[in-house]
């Protein structure tokens, strides 16, 4: 059973489009629209999968394999991280997480340059700019967690946070700072408002989409799906690290069917809460000016630094 649970990441991969569907539905509703059904992303992906992947004649193999790289990197992340149960295929370092994210972004930026279109290059440079800003923040979050718990293992930190429970959690201000910091960094990393507008039609403001413009059919489906998985993974990470289950529920360790059901239900509830927050946030914020992106990333860095200093000084 535990072995089987190791593959819980597959569930996240499969459910990610639905999660995006829910997010879009929520946002549509706040915009007074009805919006597409929550399963619309599946329909889009299936339709794109059926279409041929047209590639420009100028592109190399690099361009062709990038969608697969993206998909497998984000898929791997899902498989390595605990989703609704602590059992995973392997114990994973947070550092691995950061560099897998970095690798995906690097591959995607290269693909943008490879296509040789004017927007691809523009998108690549913006992607790298944003990643540069997030990477520092993410490393600092990890250092803070390491200083706090003397470990960088994802599962170990999960356990610590779960053992802490909610009441004690609130008594640890550095963790709250870190939660805010990570939330900001997730907005940056997943290219959502106020950093980038995933729904834009304006080619000059695009960052992620500028590169995706060159792809078609199957390739595009994989890229879109990979992006959904990425957001799903990041939200799961945030939820599991900083919204631990209540101690009495003990779902993270349980194996029985009722325990698993409870764990899954709790996980979904957490995710929906985060999606709701994300929807509210995205609608209440306009997109920032490209240069002002430094602002939120600086805030994230300062928050993590404060958490580190707080932890160190308090321990002594």
């Amino acid at each position: 059973m535990t072995k089987l649970l190791g593959f819980q990441g597959l569930l996240l991969i499969l459910l990610a489009p639905c999660m995006i569907g829910v997010l879009r539905k929520l946002e549509a509703w706040l915009e007074l629209r009805q919006g597409p059904g929550i399963f619309q992303p599946y329909r889009d992906i299936v339709k794109l999968m059926r279409k041929p992947a047209m590639r420009a004649r100028t592109t190399s193999r690099l361009f062709a394999i990038t969608p697969y790289v993206l998909f497998s990197v984000y898929g791997l992340l899902c498989l390595l991280a605990p989703v609704f149960h602590r059992a995973t295929l392997a114990s994973v370092d947070l550092i691995v997480v950061i560099y897998l994210l970095g690798m995906a972004r690097f591959a995607f930026s290269l693909a943008g340059l490879d296509a040789g279109s004017s927007f691809g290059g523009l998108g690549s440079s913006r992607q790298m700019f944003v990643h540069l800003l997030t990477e520092i923040g993410l490393v600092l979050v990890i250092i803070a967690l390491m200083v706090k718990w003397n470990t960088v293992s994802l599962t170990a930190i999960f356990d610590k946070h779960w053992e802490l429970g909610y009441v004690n959690f609130l008594a640890e201000p550095e963790l709250i700072l870190l939660a805010l910091s990570l939330a900001l960094l997730i907005l940056l990393e997943s290219a959502r408002i106020p950093i980038d507008n995933p729904a834009t039609h304006l080619e000059l403001t695009m960052s992620h989409k500028a590169i995706a413009l060159e792809y078609a059919g199957r390739d595009l489906a994989l890229i879109e799906w990979a992006e959904m998985i990425k957001l799903g993974f990041l939200l799961t990470l945030l939820g599991n690290l900083f919204l631990p289950f209540p101690r009495w529920a003990d779902p993270m360790h349980s194996i029985g069917p009722s325990g698993l059901a409870l764990a899954f239900g709790g996980y979904c509830a957490k995710l929906i809460l985060l999606l709701l927050l994300l929807a509210f946030w995205e609608l209440s914020q306009p997109k920032l000016r490209l240069r002002s992106i430094i602002g939120p990333s600086l805030v994230a860095i300062v928050l993590s630094l404060t958490a580190i200093i707080y932890t160190i000084t308090l321990r002594k």
Partner: peptide
């Protein structure tokens, strides 16, 4: 968009 129809940015 509620009908599953969406305007896209690229002819591809």
């Amino acid at each position: 968009e509620r009908f599953g129809i969406k305007f896209e940015s690229s002819p591809r």
